[in-house]
Design a protein around this nucleic acid. Structure first.
Lengths: 322, 322
DNA sequence: CTTGCGTCTGAAATCGATTTCTGTAACGCT
DNA sequence: AGCGTTACAGAAATCGATTTCAGACGCAAG
């Protein structure tokens, strides 16, 4: 691999001059030409590792997400990418699989690779961002905010969304409305539950705590949770499902039980991914996933550029689909 | 950020000793203890950039894929991750969006960051891997192999899969079977078309070239392609769709046209992602996405470990779902 | 002709970890 | 006691780019 020294030698200049050519400082047009020719000749690609070591910062942004297989997060990733690339940064994705140790491993990588910044959808409420914060690395939380972290955040209004989704079921005449929530230690989940409760209360419906099932935000978890609800003594007549993938699981469980949606109502927080059939009996509240990503990226880029204002939280709306 | 020198000073040893403690070479138990205490005290995280610069190789593997929003590729990513992590490597994902210039940008990043290796599902037949190969970086192609690249590859048997999918339609009695293929410059697409042709020929059915539509392997492309087929003078009675996302688009187009699947048969290459309804009138050939990823990762890891044998190609089967 | 200023260049230090090479101490053996 | 061997530690070079500092040169003004 050709280095800046090889280029310098071939061009008959010093390494400093080669560096200057690639960094836009003043160089004779003559020298610029010679250096560029030499670089092309040698197929020179600057060594980013050396550059990063010297500058103590690279132009890579890490996006840390809990589930790469969830289309919601991949759409979010697209939003991040669009903004970041436009600003000249590369984005790398890190999948934590909801595992805090994997997450902290990736955070260490981000720190020790001197990445420019991190956008993170935390694996848990208790995710520890201190490795980043202590070294005042630019960080933006997206979708989920770890408890007590005083950082920029971009989220959706989970309470309002949960209420809206549940209300759709109420309006359609369902009375005994269950909830399949996400993990108890994930912020978005507790808020969506709060929205569910609020909607029930507003409608004057009884809130039966046994109708709350926790699952894992995955397809299989939603499937199992719905099975548990069906086995209930007093079976619910509708279910508010707190994320897209669990809704898929819940619908599969219904199908396998020979029940078809209007019979049991389903409201999904987040549109069903890649659905092909007109949603009969399924209400959804849709999330601006891509916008979450791009908003987070914009804030991160400002921080990287040196913005020092107080951390702010941007809340986007979840919109009920009619 | 604490460095190895800070740790050395606090522990009263030389930087070399600190390095040895973290790399498992022989050090007095006494020194080991002192160094570890000092490191913990200072919250020391080794600077990977410096390490990589010196060693000329990091322990990060890049996975370059054309469409992060396609569940097939994210499942593949999971396969890669599982293997790579087990071997102590971190995986970063790079999304090229089928764009060769973005792709080559990421390949340059992989080279100039001295990543340990690259697994790539190429954006095109004509993708240029020479930046990697010239510097003999470990590379494995997965899913798609750029034309003429003499490298390790893990693919599915696209011809057999295309034939099997088409044959399912033939067996169900359809006679005028169209094909919605992917981009003309993508290897998997041309092979799946070949499978479609072979099945038609084997069944003695006429092969009408106007029944072949090219699209982009995306949902919207599949939608538009199906609309074009419906507008045909002699409308097809079934369609072989060459990937999962286009099948979603095609089914949506059918739905919007008021046609329901058994009326027009659909065979999808790749299972429908997150489907919730029992597939009526939709045949699928399912792909071992995760296995593709893990097989590719295993080969890459062997190469990284120094394997020098001839490049080999592993072909996995696409299995018709009954 | 000298002074002064501006423009451009190169030498060398720097970022932080790894590793070779050299040196010292301790130990076992004859 | 003398010698060889092993085990460990430290000094210093190294990876490749950036950047400071100082020097060289040209040109204009006095």
């Amino acid at each position: 691999m050709a280095t800046i020294y090889d280029v310098a030698r071939l061009a008959g200049v010093s390494p400093a001059t080669v560096s200057r050519v690639f960094n836009g400082t003043t160089v004779t047009p003559q020298n610029e030409r010679v250096v560029k020719e030499a670089a092309a000749e040698l197929d020179f690609v600057p060594n980013r590792t050396a550059r990063t070591l010297r500058l103590r910062s690279s132009d890579i942004i890490a996006l840390v997400i809990p589930d790469i297989e969830n289309p919601y997060f991949t759409a979010l990733a697209r939003g991040v990418e669009d903004e970041a690339r436009a600003a000249g940064y590369s984005v790398v994705l890190c999948n934590t699989d909801d595992d805090m140790s994997r997450e902290s491993g990736y955070l260490d990588v981000a720190v020790s690779e001197h990445m420019a910044g991190v956008i993170i959808a935390a694996a848990s409420d208790r995710s520890d961002l201190s490795p980043l914060l202590d070294r005042n690395k630019a960080v933006v939380a997206v979708d989920r905010v770890p408890r007590g972290a005083a950082i920029d955040a971009v989220t959706v209004d989970n309470v309002a969304g949960g209420r809206a989704a549940t209300t759709l079921l109420v309006e359609r005449g369902y009375r005994r409305i269950a909830c399949i929530a996400g993990p108890a230690d994930v912020e978005t989940s507790t808020r969506r539950i709060a929205g569910w409760s609020a909607a029930l209360e507003a409608a004057g419906l009884p809130e039966d705590p046994t109708l709350l099932e926790h699952a894992d935000y995955r397809v299989d978890g939603g499937y199992a949770a719905l099975e548990r609800l069906l086995a209930h003594d007093e079976r619910p007549d509708a279910v508010f499902v707190a994320n897209n993938l669990m809704s898929v699981g819940a619908l599969r469980a219904l199908r396998d039980a020979g029940i078809h949606p209007p019979a049991v109502g389903i409201a999904s927080f987040g549109a069903l991914p890649f659905s092909t059939s007109a949603p009969t009996g399924v209400s959804t509240v849709s999330l601006p996933a891509r916008e979450l990503g791009s908003a987070a990226a914009r804030i991160l880029l400002e921080r990287i550029a040196g913005d020092r204002q107080e951390p702010r939280t941007v809340v986007l709306e979840a919109v009920p689909v009619v």
